[in-house]
């Protein structure tokens, strides 16, 4: 077929931020389906809660301090996360590097706390259906934490190499975006795991 050029797009940029970029929508898609996974796991928890006369089954509720400490750190982490986001938009490499290092350290701290949380659940996965669903949900969220931490660490290293080109700043903002999802997902899970058994 004969072609008629009706427009030249040569002046367009080669990367963008947020909804302009493809990876942002990809992250959105994965957050949607992972969010659905969390919702279903919560549904399963509530189903088991509803069909069992006593809850938690044969155990005391989880100790509150690890989960609560995590909530505080997660909420505070939004601040350095957002600072990293702004630095990335300004393409301020030095600040992005600092921000990523801070976020990696926060991730590691949360992972350590998560270890304590497992130890203070006061039930094993094979005690009862209660133990099973609690371990499943916490495991699911831990997988997210680990994945995002891995991504953050690799990105941090990348920004110290010759690959720290302008378009990588867009990757940094996507990483920031995904972290907010990990934080947001934790809040209902915390309420479910730590407070529902106390109702």
């Amino acid at each position: 077929m004969r072609q008629t050029i009706v427009r030249n797009v040569g002046d367009l940029p080669t990367y963008g931020y947020g909804p302009q970029s493809g990876p942002w929508w990809g992250a959105m898609g994965f957050m949607a389906l992972e969010g659905m996974g969390f919702a279903l796991a919560i549904g399963a928890y509530l189903y088991l809660y509803a069909v069992n006369p006593s809850w938690p089954i044969g155990a005391t509720p989880p100790d509150l301090w690890p989960g609560t400490a995590e909530v505080i750190i997660y909420l505070l982490s939004i601040i350095p996360n957002e600072m990293t986001n702004r630095a990335a938009h300004r393409q301020d490499l030095a600040r992005v590097r600092t921000g990523l290092i801070v976020m990696s350290l926060i991730g590691i701290a949360l992972l350590v706390l998560r270890g304590f949380e497992f130890a203070h659940l006061n039930t094993r996965w094979d005690n009862s259906a209660y133990g099973s669903i609690v371990w499943l949900i916490l495991g699911l969220h831990t997988t997210h934490l680990v994945t995002d931490l891995g991504d953050t660490v690799v990105l941090t290293v990348l920004m110290f190499t010759r690959h720290a080109k302008p378009r990588r700043f867009s990757d940094v903002t996507d990483n920031v975006f995904y972290w907010n999802f990990v934080v947001l997902a934790w809040l209902p899970l915390y309420a479910l795991l730590d407070w529902v058994p106390r109702l």
Partner: peptide
């Protein structure tokens, strides 16, 4: 007959 296209 003809296909409008973008270039660049």
């Amino acid at each position: 007959e003809s296909l409008p296209v973008v270039a660049g």
